[in-house]
Structures are given as C-alpha cells and as structure tokens.
Amino acid sequence: MSTTFLDTREANRRDLPALIELYQHLAEGDEQPSLDLAEEVFERFKAYEGSAIIVGQTAGVLAASCTLIVVPNLTRGGRPYGLIENVVTHSDFRNRGFGKQVLLQAVDLAWKADCYKAMLMTGSKKRETLDFYLGAGFEQSKTGFQMRRVAARHDD
C-alpha cells in the first residue's frame, strides 16, 4: 500500500467497529468491548468537553488514531490540560507520518480548548517509539508513575 494521503477527523459512532479493530494494532489480543458497550462508552466520552478521538482514514481504512481527554484543572489559572492516549497506527500503514498527523491534530485541539499542556505516556522502551514522540515535538521531561488493575502490555 503506497497511499500517503490521510483524511483526519473526529470519530463518530459509525467508526466504532473499525476503531475497535484498529486497537488490536495497539495491543494485539486485547479484550474487545461489545459494540453496545463501545457505543455506551463513546456517549460518556463525549461528555468531556473539548475531548476527541481523532481518526485518520486512507483508502477506506482507519489507519491511525489517538484520544485526547481535556481535563479540568484548578492550577495554571484554571486552564485545563490535555491527556493523549491510545496512539495507534495500523501495522500496514506505519512509517508514513499518519500517527504523527493524528497526534498533532490532537495537540491542536488541546490548544483550541485552552489547555496549558498536552501530555502523554508510553510504556514502550523501543527507541523507534520514543523517537516517534520526540519527532512529533514532545519532550521526555517528567517521570511517570502508575498503579494498575490490569497488567501492562510488554513491549519488547
């Protein structure tokens, strides 16, 4: 596949089946929600003002996506911050700039929502993954901690 054009937009309910499948390229074998549950979660997600699931489509396929959550905040003059999660590119479409395109659209939406920062975390230690985020303009400047109820993916 040599397609290089990516049409980016906010996801809608009709995207959910393809989006659920795309997430298998993020965590192969991860448990998938039923479509009914996905629709319910999507409706709850839309209640977070300024938040969006960005999708990138090419050749009729959802090729890349990421999620932006705009988090209300009482510091920084009451300005919110953006949390980016679930950054994924379909394995057939990697290394074409698609992931960077959806990621930068999420950052642009964060700025439009008056966020004072946009941040993300990765559990990956792969140099190419870290270089991807650095190349998109993110800096590796904080130390992250987490407590999990579900085991983390292992990224060898």
Rank of each mutant, 00 (worst) to 15 (best):
T3L: 11
T4P: 00
F5W: 00
F5V: 09
F5G: 00
F5A: 14
R9W: 10
E10W: 00
A11T: 13
N12S: 15
R13T: 15
D15T: 12
L16I: 06
P17G: 12
A18R: 12
L19Y: 15
L19Q: 10
L19I: 06
I20L: 12
L22F: 06
L26G: 05
A27M: 12
E28Q: 13
G29P: 06
D30K: 09
D30A: 15
D30R: 12
P33Y: 05
S34R: 02
S34T: 15
L37I: 14
L37G: 01
L37V: 15
A38I: 08
E39G: 15
V41I: 15
E43M: 05
E43L: 13
R44V: 10
A47L: 14
Y48T: 03
Y48I: 03
S51C: 07
I54L: 14
V55K: 06
G56Q: 07
Q57K: 14
G60T: 10
V61H: 09
V61R: 14
L62S: 04
A64S: 14
S65M: 07
T67N: 04
L68V: 04
V70M: 03
N73I: 02
L74N: 11
R76H: 15
H90A: 11
S91I: 09
S91E: 15
S91H: 13
R94Y: 02
G97V: 01
F98V: 04
Q101E: 14
Q105S: 07
A106F: 09
D108F: 00
L109P: 01
W111M: 08
A113W: 04
C115G: 09
C115T: 04
A118E: 08
A118K: 05
M119K: 10
M119T: 08
L120K: 01
M121T: 11
R127K: 13
R127L: 04
E128L: 03
E128G: 01
L130W: 01
L130A: 01
D131L: 08
L134H: 03
L134P: 00
A136W: 03
A136G: 06
G137K: 08
E139H: 13
Q140C: 03
K142V: 02
T143P: 00
T143E: 11
G144P: 00
F145V: 00
Q146I: 01
Q146V: 06
Q146M: 11
V150M: 11
R153F: 02
R153N: 09
H154F: 11
